[in-house]
Nucleic acid binder design. Structure first.
Lengths: 252, 252
DNA sequence: TTTGAAAGTGTTAAATTGACACGATGTAAA
DNA sequence: TTTACATCGTGTCAATTTAACACTTTCAAA
């Protein structure tokens, strides 16, 4: 291959590899995920919701690509993304509606594409999704309400959920989903949403407090029509301490 | 793209995506990994050892590709492979010796390649590696002796080791590395090799036996110059029972 | 003032963990 | 045949962790 040609290629889209992002949020009730709406086609059929994702460039690595694509499609910048897995069934673009849609946005719509999935956790209220590029809309959907998605995105979402379940047992990453100040009930509900099983309230609170990973404020919840709860902040220092000494046991 | 052309492409190598396999073994002393030797180039320089891996075909999925490539390069057939992660730094083929080598075996040696890594565990003595294709030799190397490998394979190996560490705490997959009949000391050494830390002998044995995941035979070790130890077999039924009821706690 | 709704709190029995040392049993060498 | 060597196999106890379980408190709104 010619060297000049090669240099040009470096800044070109790679039509064979894409990244998809599973961005989780928490609305204080349940786990949500950020989806884009591809809008209506002529046909007005097929699934319209998809994970934000797109092809990579030849001169960026996978992590960079995931961040760029997420920014381009939703406006989310510089968030921590962790890889879930690669997906590459030859028939992952087999649905008619998906092929139609690809024709409208890709130079090589029939190419076989491998996609690398990423996941992340963000504070929902910090961020109101801004659709752009081919995303007609971008918004949060409750994870439990999702039955199908474009391409193999439903499968990817399930894999990301599993990864999150595992990860939250090892590291207290859940705090990324909550506001600065939060209550232990909110944290409790968050863990139940992620693990998809009930956790005993008293045992949960005891465990969290023994870990000393939260610091209680003098402040209380206001304006709630019931006993207001204590507010807490996440203790980052303690978190570093725990992770450096290798802690295996944030298990519920 | 023309439909005829497309069908032809389906059976062609995809020059942009490869798979690499990290196959672990255990020689009763330490953890080993299966590497291929690329043999000597004209230059006779550079690193010669690499993980078995190669490009995928357009009509196979990633898991199939990993199995095929492993078979082609080493003769290992139909073993369970689990994905580790995708690796795709644009400069992962930056070493001169690697580029030279690729020129000799690939149609598009300068193409940017994303690789998907897999890992597996096999019983070493069941299998004497058979080199073939571009692998001049294939053989087992002790994991601790490896300092560098071709491409980004050293990084991939580290990631696979981490995955194995995590996984063995959740599932008793270690049994795949041992012969049918084994001693608790061997199992003990295996766990220490994988976790890279000493485990108290009595506590280890207690934990394993409480799980009832091994069944003791009437048989003993023979011909060893010391007290012969009891032989055990892995209890598959009990394993299924444990995994179905979801067990989180094979923790050491 | 009453009502509704979620917050917050403690005990106990059972299971699990971690720390720790020595006698038993086989082979091989003297 | 005795001895030396190497590894096997075993038990207890204190400390910690877990699971199960129900009632009172506090605020806002009616």
């Amino acid at each position: 291959m010619d060297k000049e040609l090669k240099k040009v290629n470096q800044n070109e889209l790679n039509p064979h590899v894409s990244v998809d992002c599973v961005i989780f949020g928490f609305d204080m009730e349940k786990l949500t995920v950020l989806l884009i709406d591809r809008g209506r086609n002529k046909s007005d059929k097929g699934i319209k919701l998809a994970l934000p994702g797109n092809l990579i460039y030849n001169n960026e690595n996978l992590d960079q690509a995931a961040n760029r694509v997420l920014d381009e499609l939703t406006g989310l910048k510089d968030i921590y993304l962790e890889q879930v897995a690669a997906f590459g069934n030859p028939d992952r673009i087999s649905k008619d509606s998906d092929r139609e849609w690809l024709k409208s946005i890709r130079a090589e719509p029939e190419a076989r594409v491998i996609t690398v999935a990423y996941f992340s956790l963000v504070k929902m209220p910090d961020y109101l999704p801004q659709a752009s590029s081919f995303a007609k809309r971008a918004g949060w959907t409750s994870v439990t309400e999702i039955n199908e998605l474009a391409f193999d995105h439903y499968e990817i979402l399930q894999a990301a959920k599993e990864k999150l379940k595992q990860k939250i047992k090892i590291q207290p990453i859940g705090f990324n989903l909550l506001p600065e100040k939060f209550t232990l009930s909110q944290l409790h509900r968050l863990y139940e949403s992620i693990l998809e099983k009930p956790l005993d309230k008293r045992n949960f609170r005891r465990k969290i407090q023994n870990l000393e990973i939260v610091t209680s404020l003098k402040e209380k919840q206001r304006g709630v029509p019931h006993k207001p709860s204590q507010l807490f902040v996440f203790n980052e220092e303690r978190y570093r301490e725990l992770t450096e000494n290798g802690f295996d046991n944030f298990d519920f």
